[in-house]
Amino acid sequence: MIELLTENIILAALVSLVGLGVLFGGLLGYAAEKFKVESDPIVEQLDELLPQTQCGQCGFPGCKPYAQSIADGDAINKCPPGGQSTINAIAKLLDVAAPSLDEEHGEEEIRTVAFIREDECIGCTKCIQACPVDAILGAAKLMHTVITQECTGCDLCVEPCPVDCIDMLPIEEDIDQWRWSIPKNQHQLIATSSSTVHETLT
């Protein structure tokens, strides 16, 4: 056998290459089984970027289903709570151009939290069933209240309330949440090729 191979170089090359092919093929096959990824990693990454309000404004029942849908090729601009920054982040992840927010699904608004006017609440539990993150506390015929820290501001509880006692209140900034803002007095002292210059010229 060895003699045959040493004498016939073409056969030797053939045998060794086929052997290598089989070996690496087997190795790759084993690795594919061993290190199998259960779910699509891109879905997880997309889900990380979405704001997790679970509001359904995108038309999907939660952020994860929308992430799945984006992975399957859906548009990335259907998330109003995330706004432009989320669109930009997703665009960066998927390496596509960032479109502006699809107004059909809503406009980007300031963050709010639900507030139940407690003396008007009749204890019907409908809002509790509607809340996607279990942020409403209460029981049948007992007053309900919102756990403010857990509320994502999705406003899914407002619609089912039969006595309209739920308000969406904007989150008020207090002294702990206050942050410095970017300086405003940026005078443009040097002539640049900005559009305003062109406008004045034409």
Binding site: D47, Q52, G62, C63, K64, P132, V133, Q149, E150
Partner: peptide, 14 residues
């Protein structure tokens, strides 16, 4: 952090 918390609560509810 709060998004992760919301996700956890949403998934638990599911």
């Amino acid at each position: 952090i709060s998004a992760a918390k919301a996700r956890e609560r949403f998934e638990f509810r599911q």
